[in-house]
Design a protein around this nucleic acid. Structure first.
Lengths: 155, 155
DNA sequence: CACGGACCATTGAAAATGTCAATCATTGAG
DNA sequence: CTCAATGATTGACATTTTCAATGGTCCGTG
């Protein structure tokens, strides 16, 4: 009755029933990899990736974040934010304004062109999300977002 | 009524209420980053990372996956799997056996030491997961896993 | 049986990301 | 005023990703 004679290869999805199939960290990693790839593909036609899209999004909706806040929020090293903002600024999608309340800090603001591009990119992003969530009811979608928020912001 | 006079910095979590706060791709990315960091920290004392832990897990529970199956399942390039398996094999945690049914393919099998280490590492992994899911009821946990599976395996 | 296209594992190189320490300007506390 | 702490920036270095090329093996076709 032991499995010693097992010569069959795992079926297409035999691995899913392994220990990892219930591993939250693994499921998150895989879901992230797939959704990130889909998002990047969709954003490419706008010259963006998920990263730059995120920065543009935060600049575009008037939160006026400093680069340090961006770094913390996006879980990036401050030096990566520099590069990201450089890219967007060179394309005139975003401006660095030194924060009047603290002249060490730069506050990010989207230009008109930036808001424009963001609006279009957001359409693409939403379409992707819709596609990803096709097998899920709106209710479940909300539940999922809520649970993910718990993991993403453990406070 | 415009926001032209807005000089206040965003509160600690003002960014969460931005467009990104409801962005599934972003939430997944951030949740993944946090849980991955936690998992890596916990696995470090066993000389593992989430990646090597995953490979070891699949080898340890007798699924006898080929490297190609591993690559697909973990969403890695086959060359990365080579490196991962090299590491585990040098530590005698895992063995490559050429698949009798297809001599091109290597099937991964855990050694006794490998199963041993995995058992201990799994304890650590489970503890981390418990910590991450502390704010969530077991029911919600299951629901989350189910929804993530939909995203992770769109078939 | 022999051929040829497809597939697995492996290698090596190049590009993208992640991580860290050092620096400059500025802030805020004492 | 002084000084430790902080935000942005730079540059170096490690890790991860992504690709193309190769040798061995498989399998369908002729």
């Amino acid at each position: 009755m032991s499995a010693s004679g097992k010569t069959r290869l795992p079926g297409r999805d035999a691995l899913r029933d392994s220990v990892l199939g219930g591993d939250l960290v693994f499921l998150l990693a895989r879901a992230n990899a797939l959704t990130l790839a889909a998002a990047n593909a969709a954003l490419a036609e706008h010259g963006l990736k998920a990263r730059s899209y995120s920065v543009l999004a935060l600049a575009a909706d008037g939160a006026r974040p400093t680069q340090r806040e961006l770094a913390e929020f996006l879980r990036l090293d401050p030096s990566q934010v520099v590069a990201l903002v450089d890219g967007l600024e060179q394309r005139q999608l975003v401006e660095r304004r030194t924060d009047p309340a603290d002249r060490r800090a730069n506050v990010l603001v989207a230009t008109d062109a930036g808001r424009d591009l963001f609006a279009r990119a957001q359409q693409a992003a939403r379409a992707v999300e819709r596609g990803l969530l096709a097998p899920v009811t709106p209710e479940e979608h909300e539940r999922l977002a809520g649970l993910l928020r718990l993991l993403a912001f453990p406070d």
